[in-house]
Computed example of a mutant assay.
Amino acid sequence: MGEIMRRRGTARVAAGVLAVAVAIAGCSKTGGATATSEKSKSGPRTIGVSVADQKSLFYIAAVDGMRKMAAQTGDKLIVLSADNNATQQVNQVNNLVTQRVDALIFIAQDATSALAGVRAANKAGIPVVAVDEKPESGDVKLATYIATDSVKAADNLCTWLFKQIGNSGEIGILRGVLGATAEVQRSKGCKQALARTPGIKVVATQSANWDETQAYKATQNMLQANPGIKAIFGESDAMGLGAAKAAKDAGRKIVSVGIDGFPTMVAGIKQGLTQATEAQIPYKMGQRAVTNADQILSGQGSQVPALQYQDTTLVTSATVNPVDFYGPNVK
């Protein structure tokens, strides 16, 4: 989901979220978002924004995009950051619901908090624009879901990675927070590429929770246990960077890649530390979220697609210069 990637989760936090979720009354099957989206609300509108954190570059850029667009639409934003605490995020969403915001833009910490938060908004008849993360189960309704096409991104990146090592040899995989939407989709995408490339053997897989430091330690263990590893696929840039730094410190030459398009990863590619990333467009995704919320509140909800997957761009040493997907304020 800056250098410490988004969506950290632990079993303890998930359990806490589930406890909060149980306390929230379920919504009806028809949901509240659709009914609200068909009503035209004139005058100043208030859009609540619940975001997992404001440390990750992805989230910072997304909120920057929201603020930029809200200045154009005239909507008021209430932005709350959960500081990577899923239970806190559920409580914050409940507070926004209590304030009767007109719409909710929700970038959830994980699928569990997403379920509880969307359910609360549905019950109150508040339309939900989900960005990046969504409930993986449950009887809830979204007005729209805006996300990176992570399956396609991972498939493309792994296909490129395999070619760099001659479509043959041993690799390691660093996974994000297990069960998170992006982790599930990126794992699926790379598996698709693996199915087409029988010469590649995955000899080590470990979750590093989107985190550079955890990825560094995991890669140290991988390289020590598997001296034949030629490459590591990090499901995020932070993990790709951690892998590259661990390999460098161990005196090992590997191909290291990630997904995000962080400026730090782009700098690593320029320096030859890392080799590639699939760049997301969080700044534009944030702008789109506000645009869609404004359309819904203006009675134009039928014009907003239910699902909006955004393509990524492969960035390598040959294409590194034109990359600027994180907006003007992220360095």
Rank of each mutant, 00 (worst) to 15 (best):
S168E: 14
Q214Y: 05
V118F: 10
I107C: 11
A114M: 09
Q88Y: 01
A318S: 12
A154R: 06
A204C: 02
G299V: 09
K245S: 07
S298R: 15
D260W: 11
A86N: 10
L104D: 10
T34W: 11
I281G: 05
R8T: 14
Q109C: 12
S256Q: 09
V131K: 02
V315T: 02
T274N: 13
V17S: 06
A267R: 10
K141T: 13
V22W: 00
I232A: 01
G16N: 05
K29R: 15
E38C: 14
A250R: 15
A180N: 15
K230Y: 03
D237T: 03
A276K: 14
G176S: 04
T291Y: 14
S256R: 09
K123E: 11
K245D: 02
N292H: 11
I296D: 14
D132A: 08
E170A: 13
I281L: 12
N329A: 14
V151E: 00
K284C: 07
L178C: 03
T213K: 13
V49F: 02
R8K: 14
L273N: 03
R196Q: 15
D110N: 15
Q54R: 15
L194D: 14
V22H: 14
K253M: 08
S50I: 08
A19F: 00
K230G: 02
S298A: 15
V128W: 07
T213P: 01
R12Y: 08
R196W: 03
K217P: 00
R175Y: 08
K191Q: 13
T148F: 00
R186C: 08
